[in-house]
């Protein structure tokens, strides 16, 4: 039987791995490639790698030759694919077909598109045709506003006048193969997934949903799988503070009869 997935999300800002709270405050966690190797050894089912560097920071970095971390995001993807043998999704700074092509060539399996969904929807349909739906993940950031879930713009912290469910349906019709659904309200809070959000979106689309935002303990993963129809449960912060975190989370889910791969530690 097909398994539900447990997915660590890595946030990269200016080449550093960071922790995020409410999509606005960031704390440095260190070197991204060594973290990926550990997450891989602990038996992650998949990885999502998001470059959240703001455009302005990027140009600043290029000018600064003394910046201690000179690795570009693409170099990091290349390194990462040499130490992990699992599916990798990468997102951030994708605005044209060749951006997607470059990332796939370096070893990524899927790309995650966020603002393109609203700004250049044609890129979604074009890339789904070119590389297949399985390659295209639509990433949607949801925020509660006026008793409903609206799409959040992480570039300027504003809310679009678009319902999350509408955008999810649009993404599916454009040919996206999956939806990475982030709760801005729960980001970094550690109080569990917004189950209502997950259910609302799951009801409206047939493509797999990856839940993200709010996990503070292993049981929150179980709640996500148990109380909604999501295909995968993802988290960022929780995986970075404990040795063998992914393994332990997987073991918890497996012990609680969730339909996941057996927990395993892998020597790479």
């Amino acid at each position: 039987m097909k398994k539900k997935r447990l997915i660590p999300v890595l946030l990269l800002k200016n080449g550093w791995l960071v922790q995020s709270k409410s999509f606005s405050r960031y704390q440095n966690l260190g070197n991204p490639t060594t973290s990926v190797k550990r997450l891989s050894q602990w038996g992650s089912d998949e990885l999502v790698y998001l470059d959240i560097t703001k455009d302005s920071d990027y140009s600043l970095r290029r000018d600064d030759q003394n910046y201690p971390n000179r690795q570009t995001f693409l170099e990091i993807i290349e390194d990462v694919s040499k130490v992990t043998f699992m599916p990798i999704t990468v997102g951030g700074k994708i605005s044209k077909i060749s951006d997607i092509e470059n990332r796939l060539k370096l070893g990524a399996d899927k790309v995650s598109l966020n603002s393109a969904l609203i700004n250049t929807p044609k890129l979604i349909s074009k890339s789904a045709k070119e590389f297949g739906s399985q390659c295209i993940v639509a990433s949607i950031d949801a925020k509660i506003e006026k008793n409903d879930y609206y799409v959040y713009n992480s570039k300027n912290s504003n809310i679009y006048n678009i319902l999350v469910t509408e955008l999810a349906q649009l993404a599916e019709s454009l040919g996206a193969g999956e939806i990475l659904l982030n709760s801005v309200d729960r980001d970094g809070e550690g109080i569990g997934y917004d189950i209502e959000l997950l259910n609302k979106v799951c009801e409206k689309v047939n493509i797999p949903i990856i839940a993200c935002g709010g996990v503070g303990e292993w049981s929150h993963f179980r709640d996500g799988l148990d109380k909604s129809n999501v295909d995968a449960v993802a988290a960022a912060n929780i995986f970075h503070y404990q040795d063998q975190s992914v393994y332990l989370a997987k073991k918890f889910l497996h012990d609680n009869q969730m339909n996941v791969r057996k927990p395993d530690l892998i020597r790479l």
């Binding site: 097909k2 997935r5 089912d45 739906s133 399985q134 193969g177 797999p208 791969r261």
Partner: peptide, 11 residues
């Protein structure tokens, strides 16, 4: 009624 493509871990 399972969606296609079949993507993910399966035994």
């Amino acid at each position: 009624n399972h969606p296609l493509p079949h993507i993910g871990w399966n035994s």
